[in-house]
């Protein structure tokens, strides 16, 4: 019989085998971003990651986590004391050749399709086109209800060495929610 500690050990070994630097699942907040971001910077500095690569990984990480914080449909909030937490998962790893940042969170079905279309569009653009698109979006007034998400995704695409991968798992029999997962390689 497998003990509970063995189960966790298998999980730990599975993560290590994937080259995972850290993986967080639960409720995220801005102070967690500060802490995880600082840990990520230190870890990359210790492993003598090229400074330009480290900056790109950090940038992708920040935009991904802020997207979860702002857009996750799984939220816990209280007015007093003021707390706002967003459910999701973030994983950063190195597969021997490239860093990767995977983020996933639950979104309402209505948000999933526009997000998918944005990612398909971004994947069709080369580096120069992404740069031009970023500039264009910076000059525009913020889109209603987007809090700048489109620029965040363009930033991720610009810092990535490959098109952003994504996948969707529909949830529940009504399929009114989806787990939206995106993976960026640097």
């Amino acid at each position: 019989m497998t003990t509970w500690a063995e189960t966790y050990n298998d999980y730990r070994r599975w993560l290590n085998g994937q080259g995972i630097i850290f993986s967080f699942t639960g409720y995220l907040s801005e102070d967690m971003l500060t802490t995880l971001g600082s840990a990520l910077k230190k870890r990359m500095a210790l492993s003598e990651t090229d400074a330009n690569v480290a900056k790109r990984v950090f940038s992708v990480f920040v935009e991904q986590v802020q997207n979860i914080i702002r857009y996750s449909a799984d939220r816990l909030a209280s007015a007093e004391p003021p707390v706002e937490l967003s459910g999701g998962m973030v994983t950063v790893g190195f597969d021997g050749h490239r860093f990767f940042v995977v983020c996933g969170n639950v979104v309402d079905a209505a948000r999933a399709e526009p997000l998918r279309e944005r990612l398909i569009h971004l994947a069709s653009l080369d580096k120069e086109q992404l740069k031009a698109y970023y500039r264009e979006k910076l000059r525009e007034p913020a889109e209603a209800d987007s809090q700048g998400a489109s620029i965040g995704l363009i930033e991720i695409a610009r810092r990535s060495s490959e098109p952003i991968e994504y996948d969707i798992v529909w949830l529940g029999t009504a399929r009114n929610r989806a787990f939206f997962c995106i993976k960026a390689f640097i």
Binding site: V62, E63, Q66, R139, A142, Q147, I151, G152, E155
Partner: peptide, 15 residues
């Protein structure tokens, strides 16, 4: 380093 929402603020200042 600055994130995308800070970039937006910088752009506003530059404009």
């Amino acid at each position: 380093y600055f994130n995308s929402s800070s970039a937006k603020a910088l752009m506003n200042m530059f404009q």
